[in-house]
Amino acid sequence: MGGFLAFVLSRATGVSAFAILEAGYLFLSLIGLALVYAFVMRELAGNPDRSRYRLLFLLSLPLGLAGARLIPIVQDAFIAGRLTWGLVTHGGLVFYGGGLAVLGAMYLGCRLSKLPPWPLLDAVCLYAPLGHAFGRLGCFFGGCCFGAPTECLVGVRFPAASPAFLQHRSLGLLPQGAVASLPVHPSQLYETLGNLALFALLALLAKGQRPLPPARLTAYYLLGYAALRFTLEFWRGDAIRGIYWGLSLSQYVALAVVLATAVAALSLREKT
């Protein structure tokens, strides 16, 4: 959708439409990241180790980027039957890989620094859905992560050259001379709304009368997002995310996250 908007802006300003598209795409995602950073630092305002948590937050970001690239690289290499430098340097990012890598890096960093990890992780997990909601707006703008074709009222068409258009054309779903994709579920906006609802729920739990024990918010976020993602994947239509035996890769990751969170919660309960 952003391609289209970028085209209109490009005509008005003379700036390359592709540059506007990339800028808009990144801008919305970076707004999300900046919001998470700002609110987490505000949450840790009274913590004496705040500056060390800040350093760990910032150091974990490159690892998150690497984690977000890992899944597309493995998928592309699997399809191509070989791993080339081009596959490593070109391609998209997967939120789940990045999110889990960031949380893992923060946990390990805190352990190595002999800091309790939960003040940082609980704060990050509280505000992550808010930042992610902006990130999904970036997806809608960029046209990736699009939904399955639909005839319902909320269906939107993505313009020529968008990923939805290219996929529908390659599958022979579009008539000759089509200028837009078939109407698809705005799955990116569904996830934006779902993330905002998850954020509201976590904020209510966090600011309730009784303070939550450490690690509880992290567990609630991991379980809540896994449930949200597993459900919303049924309305996704982008084939590139990978479908295996009826479920998408993210749905398998969501199931693994639920299982790992349940095991970790049980082992924590036994320890305490």
Binding site: E22, A68, G92, L93, F95, C139, G142, C144, P163, I240
Partner: peptide, 8 residues
């Protein structure tokens, strides 16, 4: 085309 989140 963009084929994944943030990968324009």
């Amino acid at each position: 085309a963009s084929c994944g989140c943030l990968g324009a």
